[in-house]
C-alpha cells in the first residue's frame, strides 16, 4: 500500500509546508503560507476534492491521511501565529520602554499650614478623651483676659504677659485662650465641662526666631464634681505619649499661674536626644511643652461653679512651639512668613 501515490504526495506536501513555515516571519507571510497550504486552491485541498475519484479501497486511507496533514498544518499555523504575536508584543513593549527616572507629572495638591496640622492632631487626641472644641473671641475685655482669671489690676502676675491694648479702654488682644474658660463655664454651669480651646493669642514682644506677636494656643479645661490633680496627670500624660510617642517620659514640675492652683509645667523627655542633652533641649534633656494646674477657686466662682462642690483642671500649650519641636523648626517666624519653600514641605 506504500506505493499509493496520494499518500506519498501528502507526506511530501506536509514536509514542504512545515519547512516553508519555518521561514515565515511576519503576519503577511503567514497569511500567504495559509493561502498556499490551507487555502481553497492548495494542493492538500485538491487531494480532498479528488478523493471521490480514487479507488474505493484506498479512499479511506488517503482521506484519513489528508485529514491528519490538514490538522498538523493548522496546528503548526496556530503555533506559528502565536509565536509571531508574542514576538510582535515583545518588540512593541521594547520600543515603548520609558526612562522611568524622568520626573512624574504631579497633579497640584495644596498643603495644610503646619499649624493646622498640629492643631488637628491635638484636637483629635483630646476628642477621643471626650474634650470638644470651644472657640471664643480674640479681641477681649480686660475682665475676661485678666480680672476674672484671678488677676485684678496691678496683680504682679500680669507681668507674665506683655499685652497689646486697644485704643478702647478695657479692651485688649487676648494674651492666652484662658478667657474662653470663663465664657464656656458661664455658658454651661453647673453642667460638667470637657473642652479644648484653640485659637490665636497675642503678646507684645519683639519678633525674633524665638518669639512672635501672635501664636496659637490650645487650652484644655475639665470641670466637674470629681476632677482631681491625678486626672490632670493621667490626661496630659496620655496626650503627651500620643503626640510624642508611647515611650515619651514626662514630668510635672511645680509652677505658678494665677488661674490655677496647684500649678505645674509639663516637660517631656527630649525626643531628639532621648534625654542625653542636645541643642533642642538646651542640654537639659527635657522639653517644656505645657503649663497646667487645678482651676483656681476664684476662677471657678467667676465661671459660676461653687468651688466647694466643683473642681477642675486646665492646661495650655503653644501650637507653634509643639510644631517646632515635632519638625525641628528653628525659627518661629517661618509660620506667618508663609514662604512656599517652607509650607510645601508639610
Amino acid at each position: 500500500m506504500d506505493d499509493v501515490l496520494e499518500i506519498n504526495e501528502l507526506d511530501a506536501l506536509q514536509a514542504r509546508a512545515l519547512q516553508e513555515l519555518e521561514a515565515v516571519n511576519d503576519e503577511a507571510a503567514l497569511q500567504a503560507w495559509r493561502v498556499a497550504h490551507l487555502g481553497r486552491n492548495a494542493p492538500l485541498m485538491q487531494i480532498f476534492s479528488r478523493l471521490g475519484q480514487l479507488p474505493k479501497e484506498v479512499r479511506p486511507q488517503v482521506g484519513q491521511r489528508a485529514n491528519q496533514v490538514k490538522q498538523a498544518l493548522e496546528a503548526a499555523l496556530e503555533e506559528r501565529a502565536a509565536a509571531l504575536r508574542a514576538a510582535a508584543l515583545r518588540r512593541a513593549l521594547e520600543s515603548e520602554r520609558l526612562d522611568v527616572t524622568l520626573p512624574g507629572r504631579r497633579p497640584e495638591l495644596g498643603r495644610l499650614h503646619p499649624t493646622t496640622r498640629t492643631l488637628r492632631r491635638i484636637v483629635h487626641i483630646f476628642a477621643e478623651m471626650g474634650f470638644q472644641v470651644y472657640r471664643s473671641r480674640e479681641v477681649e475685655s480686660d475682665a475676661y483676659n485678666f480680672e476674672l482669671l484671678n488677676m485684678p489690676a496691678h496683680h504682679p502676675a500680669r507681668d507674665l504677659w506683655d499685652t497689646f491694648y486697644t485704643t478702647t479702654s478695657g479692651v485688649l488682644l487676648r494674651t492666652h485662650t484662658s478667657p474662653g474658660q470663663i465664657h464656656v463655664m458661664r455658658e454651661r454651669a453647673p453642667q460638667p465641662i470637657r473642652v479644648i480651646l484653640p485659637g490665636m493669642c497675642y503678646r507684645y514682644e519683639q519678633i525674633s526666631a524665638r518669639s512672635e506677636i501672635q501664636f496659637n494656643q490650645v487650652e484644655v479645661l475639665a470641670v466637674g464634681r470629681n476632677i482631681t490633680f491625678s486626672d490632670l496627670k493621667g490626661t496630659l500624660n496620655t496626650f503627651a505619649r500620643r503626640l510624642f510617642g508611647e515611650q515619651a517620659r514626662t514630668r510635672l514640675r511645680p509652677s505658678y499661674f494665677p488661674f490655677t492652683e496647684p500649678s505645674a509645667e509639663m516637660d517631656v523627655e527630649c525626643f531628639v536626644c532621648g534625654g542625653k542633652g542636645c541643642t533642642v533641649c538646651k542640654g537639659s534633656g527635657w522639653l517644656e511643652i505645657l503649663g497646667c494646674g487645678m482651676v483656681h477657686p476664684t476662677v471657678l466662682q467667676n465661671g459660676g461653679y461653687d468651688p466647694e462642690e466643683f473642681g477642675g483642671f486646665a492646661a495650655g500649650m503653644g501650637v507653634e512651639r509643639i510644631t517646632m519641636l515635632l519638625h525641628r523648626i528653628e525659627d518661629i517666624r517661618y509660620f506667618w512668613a508663609n514662604d512656599v519653600r517652607f509650607l510645601s514641605q508639610f
Binding site: 470637657r194 482631681t228 486626672d231 496627670k233 511645680p254 492652683e261
Partner: peptide, 24 residues
C-alpha cells in the same frame, strides 16, 4: 493643697483618667 502636693511630690501622685461623668 498646692503646698501639700509640692512636698508630697508631684511625681508621686497617681495617674488616672477622669471618672467624673462625661459631659453631653
Amino acid at each position: 493643697i498646692e503646698e501639700i502636693a509640692r512636698l508630697y511630690g508631684y511625681d508621686r501622685l497617681p495617674e488616672t483618667l477622669p471618672a467624673d461623668p462625661l459631659p453631653q
